[in-house]
Each structure stands twice: as C-alpha cells, then as structure tokens.
Computed example of a mutant assay.
Amino acid sequence: MNPRRKKRMLAVLAIIFGVGSAIGLTLYALQENINLFYTPSELIEGKGEGKEKPFVGQKLRIGGMVVPGSVVRDETNLDVTFKLVDTGPLVTIKYHGILPDLFREGQGIVAQGTLIEPNVIEAFEVLAKHDEEYMPSEVAEAVKGIKHVKPTYNLNSEN
C-alpha cells in the first residue's frame, strides 16, 4: 500500500472513530433525560408485549386519577402523599412542594419523578389538568373509559 492511500485510510478511520465516539457520548448523556410515561397499571404489571417494568431509581412520568380520600398532607412541612389509579392497582406518589391550584381528589394528573419502590414514586413535579375537557393525550389514551368503569381499590392495601 502506498503512503498516500495509507494516510487516507487512517484519516477515514479517525473520522469514523470520532463520529462514533461523539454519537455514543451523546446517547449516554441523553439517557438521564429520558422520562418514559407509565400508568399505574403499566408500572405494576409491566409495559408492552414484554411486560417490562421500570427499575428502582429510574426517572419516569406517571399519569392517572388521584384517589379520593388518599391525599395526606404533613402539617409541619410541604410533604404530600397521595395515591393514583387508572383502572387497576394503586401507586403512591410522594411530593415535596406546593401542589398546583387545580390539584384535587378525583382529578387526572401527571407526575414526574423517580421510582423509589416498585409502587412508590418520589415526584419532583406534579401537573394538573386545567378544565374538564382537557387531558394530556398520553393520559387520555391510558385511562380511556375510566369514567365508565369504576376502579376497585382499597386505600388500606399496600398496592
């Protein structure tokens, strides 16, 4: 191989290695910012055909209806705990902060946070819908028919 071809080959390989490294580092950096959307049923039972469940420590978004009678506010600080439901199991949300003005029991919400136990999420943001007609499209799809099918849940159970 003559020296000119050798230089070109090394230059092409260096470019391919550089671009590959840049793409790999970008994907690694973005991995922390991906928040997958779950419903309470998908969180507990698994999502998709493979029934894949999120791992403890994973950042995620969850949407559902706030269970009436489940909101517990700490009297000494801004800690709030409440339960979410879609058509199945309950998921507990722990939140530290001021809830949106439109937050209330029996209403659809979306919470963003970290899974700290298989059915407990520590939220860093809680979003409430703004009127009876609007619901985020992901939540609307996930809880379609919830007004017609009364979910069965027991506030005393650990689900």
Rank of each mutant, 00 (worst) to 15 (best):
S137I: 14
V143I: 15
Y134A: 04
H148D: 10
V139Q: 07
P89G: 13
A128M: 01
I121E: 06
Q31Y: 13
A123V: 01
A29E: 13
F55N: 00
Y28A: 15
T114L: 10
G113A: 04
K47M: 08
L25W: 15
L78R: 11
N33C: 15
E122H: 05
L127R: 10
F55E: 02
T39M: 12
G24S: 10
G64T: 09
Y38G: 06
K51E: 13
A123K: 01
M65V: 13
A111V: 14
I146M: 10
A111M: 11
F124D: 04
P54N: 08
V149L: 01
L25Y: 15
S41Q: 00
V91F: 05
V149D: 00
T76G: 01
E138K: 11
E138S: 14
G113F: 02
M65T: 11
E133H: 02
F103A: 07
K47R: 10
P118G: 08
F37N: 11
S41E: 01
E45L: 06
P118Y: 09
V66K: 01
E133T: 02
V56I: 15
Y134I: 03
F17T: 14
G88D: 05
M65F: 08
E133Q: 02
D86I: 06
E141V: 04
S21D: 07
L99M: 14
L27R: 11
S21N: 11
V72P: 04
T114F: 08
K47E: 04
K144R: 08
L127P: 01
L99F: 09
K59G: 03
F124H: 01
K129G: 11
V19H: 09
K53Q: 09
E52A: 12
L27E: 12
T92D: 03
T81Y: 06
L30Q: 13
Q107P: 00
L60G: 08
A128R: 00
V19S: 07
P68F: 07
V149P: 00
K150G: 00
V71F: 04
V120F: 07
Y38N: 07
V143A: 12
V126R: 13
L90E: 14
I44E: 00
P89M: 06
D74R: 01
V143D: 05
K129V: 08
E32N: 15
N35M: 13
K53E: 04
K83G: 06
S137A: 14
T76C: 01
D79F: 04
